[in-house]
Design a binder for these strands. Structure first.
Length: 117
DNA sequence: GCATTGACGAAGG
DNA sequence: CCCTTCGCCAATG
């Protein structure tokens, strides 16, 4: 099927949203992995920036499932409340401790693998 | 239209 | 091991 990477027909942001929506419940991914999947391994900043506008688009983009490479909830301040991100994750079975995901590899979802490169 | 910033991350010193 | 610089692309001043 010749579908390796996302097409460039859509903006970088659209691709980001598309990938993030595919993150299963109870799983998390990182900015770097998503950027890497989109072909810009150094474009992690853009993924984060894309999330900044994710709140206003539909269908819903589970931005709370995207954290930095350390599993740190760096984007928590961009939610309605500082605890919203952590609570949403814990509700899905992801344990958080000190703003950091516990046992990240256990919950990590890599689009490069999950979407069958 | 250029400079700065931004939910990041790798590489270099 | 800590700090700085660069790259990524888009939005803002």
């Amino acid at each position: 099927m010749a579908h390796k990477k996302a097409s460039k027909d859509y903006s970088f942001f659209e691709n980001v949203y598309g990938v993030v929506r595919k993150i299963p419940k109870g799983k998390v991914s990182t900015y770097g992995l998503i950027a890497n999947y989109l072909g810009s391994k150094q474009g992690a900043r853009m993924v984060g920036w894309a999330m900044n506008g994710a709140h206003q688009i539909k269908p819903k983009v589970p931005a709370h499932r995207v954290v930095n490479r350390n599993g740190l909830l760096t984007g928590k301040h961009h939610f309605e409340t500082d605890m919203a991100m952590q609570l949403a994750l814990e509700k899905e079975g992801v344990k958080i401790e000190n703003n950091c995901i516990v046992d990240l590899p256990k919950h990590l979802w890599d689009p490069n693998t999950a979407l069958n490169i």
